[in-house]
Design a protein around this nucleic acid. Structure first.
Lengths: 342, 342
DNA sequence: TAGCTTGACGAAAGCCTTTTCGGCCCGTTT
DNA sequence: AAACGGGCCGAAAAGGCTTTCGTCAAGCTA
């Protein structure tokens, strides 16, 4: 690093400048601009005009230094590229942006060391709180109990029950998916899903199976776990049709899988949804709307998860902490790939 | 708002605390921790241990207040959900995160008012600079010349040539795409692309046509502009095959379109890539790798765009401003959908 | 031994804002 | 007329840190 020349930036206006221009003290200027009462209307006007002329913008650093609160929070994500983090992040950003809170974004790239580094950096910047966004619903290591600011975990719950975590209810998601298929008159339902190492896959399968049991049914064949890809959806469908050609619905663990399933059904001459209904999870628009027919899918309401996390963090900052894992409901978005059995 | 109770947070350690514990003045403590020279080694060690014991973390606000630099930058995006912003944002976050710079994330949701609001908020927080990330390559309104901090535009260039913008080179992207197809021995190349209102669509088409002209060729039929969807890809392919059944390559304006094209070619019995080569733009993994066969695509190197923008911002902050629109090259990622003509 | 340099450390100013408290001026009350 | 109460404003402290400069002791030269 060579000593940088530095731009001859023309000294951003400070409250002192405003006060001088308005011919009052900084104290009065401050009070005038912040709507405090002990200022004559005329004086206040003069100050406001001076501030306007200098395009004065109060230094939040100084303000935060004094107030002890900075009005900033840290958003710690483990993988930005993952499509689950983004909607959550948007929801949180949305909830914060409405107020006067700014968001520090940090991506740990799934690396614990880097995460630790970011936490330290954020604490140094005196954030008022932290939201930790994960990319899968499996529990993740807690940041610890002795942080000086409240923490809320979103999507990926903390493994410490003393922490507060906000996650979508995948078990219930499985349930409402099956109930939709049942409502469509389907009874011979197969399940093709993703990596069994993912809690989301197991939860959805469990919820679905429970709902089936409630109707005195079970899956056609065993649920097939493997990977979250179109390729697996295609392969699994081929196998499924060989053994259970009488299937009238396929519940897929993700929209990607569902795309593969639909494609093979179509190729083999099975009509969707007339002969076989298909639905997925995640409601990933690019996939659901381009499918032929468009895919019915369970939306995980991720933006809501983000918003709820932000609100919970507000609460915790204001001294009303919660703890444990809180779940948020999902919803079925109906499109052309499911319909009542004719 | 009721007056919040506020948590009885146990007073985060301050430099004064460290100094007291180490039995020195704050001045000495500061110098010890910052590696200044005027401290005896033994004293320094004592201070460091005290800081350790109190898990002291210097307040960056106070530091920034003094230094005039905060070590923060604002990242202003217009649509977080768009898949173009994310990689750029990651690249920028990456470049910053390496240093000691933290990133404020703001999403304007494509709304100019909200954007203005965010800019004001960021300036109030005394960011050292701003990166404005767009979601399409068409020029966007400048934030103006009179901001107190440097600004770099990424992906979407500013309409003011005095600003610095970093964008992928879409014209060149069209060129290298065609050159790849030519290298595969293809000569009857059609172009199916997206919304003609997008500069990216026109640039790519122009670049591609220029490359063809260089080889004494032109597109088979006129380039077909419409929308960025699989559905359009399918429809356009049907029309194309009716009129130009002898086509041996289809250059698609996006991977989504390419997916549709491949699907219809496959349905109609045209082998990909043996009979017809297909390639897309954007290199969107979910689409390219799930296609049958996997799609060759032009990667826009968006992470690099983000990184370059961050580095340019560093430069500008250090007083070395640049201006104008700078383009970054793209690259062809070869997969199964293109191959040498047998 | 007086005077010097050098090294180590502390006092204090400064960054920018908010807030408390005291002062001043005027109009009211007894 | 004296005391009093309000309304309006300014001085000053606080918040945590860095930096400059002054102080002081030790070690050195003359």
């Amino acid at each position: 690093m060579t000593p940088a020349p530095g731009p001859a930036r023309s000294h951003t206006a400070t409250l002192t400048d405003v006060a001088r221009l308005a011919g009052v003290s900084v104290a009065t200027a401050s009070k005038a601009l912040n709507g405090r009462s002990q200022v004559r209307a005329e004086t206040r006007q003069r100050v406001i005009e001076a501030a306007e002329r200098l395009s004065f913008r109060p230094n939040q650093l100084a303000r935060g230094l004094l107030a002890g609160r900075t009005g900033t929070v840290g958003l710690l994500t483990s993988d930005l590229e993952g499509r689950f983090s983004i909607p959550i992040l948007m929801g949180a950003e949305d909830a914060f942006g409405a107020g006067e809170v700014a968001v520090f974004l940090c991506d740990a790239r799934g690396d614990a060391i880097r995460e630790q580094h970011h936490v330290r950096a954020l604490l140094g910047r005196r954030v008022d709180g932290l939201i930790v966004v994960g990319s899968r619903t499996d529990p993740r290591p807690s940041l610890g109990r002795d942080l000086p600011v409240p923490v809320v975990y979103a999507y990926a719950p903390s493994d410490d029950p003393a922490d507060l975590s906000i996650v979508p209810d995948n078990v219930d998601a499985g349930r409402i998916a099956v109930e939709h298929l049942l409502a469509c008159g389907r009874t011979r339902i197969a399940h093709i899903t993703g990596d069994p190492g993912y809690l989301a896959a197991r939860d959805r399968a469990d919820g679905a199976r429970a709902a089936l049991a409630g109707a005195g049914l079970d899956f056609v064949g065993e649920p097939r776990f493997a990977e979250w890809s179109e390729g697996w959806g295609r392969a699994a469908t081929a196998m499924l049709l060989e053994r259970h050609a009488d299937v009238d619905a396929v519940l897929c663990g993700s929209d990607q899988i569902a795309r593969g399933v639909v494609e093979i059904l179509r190729e083999r001459g099975h009509r969707v949804p007339e002969d076989v209904a298909v639905m997925g999870f995640d409601n990933w628009q690019v996939l659901t709307s381009a499918s032929r027919p468009p895919l019915t899918s369970v939306d995980m309401n991720l933006e809501q998860v983000g918003r709820a996390a932000a609100q919970a963090l507000f609460g915790a900052i204001d001294g009303i902490p919660r703890s444990g894992v809180e779940t948020l409901p999902c919803r079925v978005v109906i499109r052309g790939s499911t319909a009542h059995l004719s």
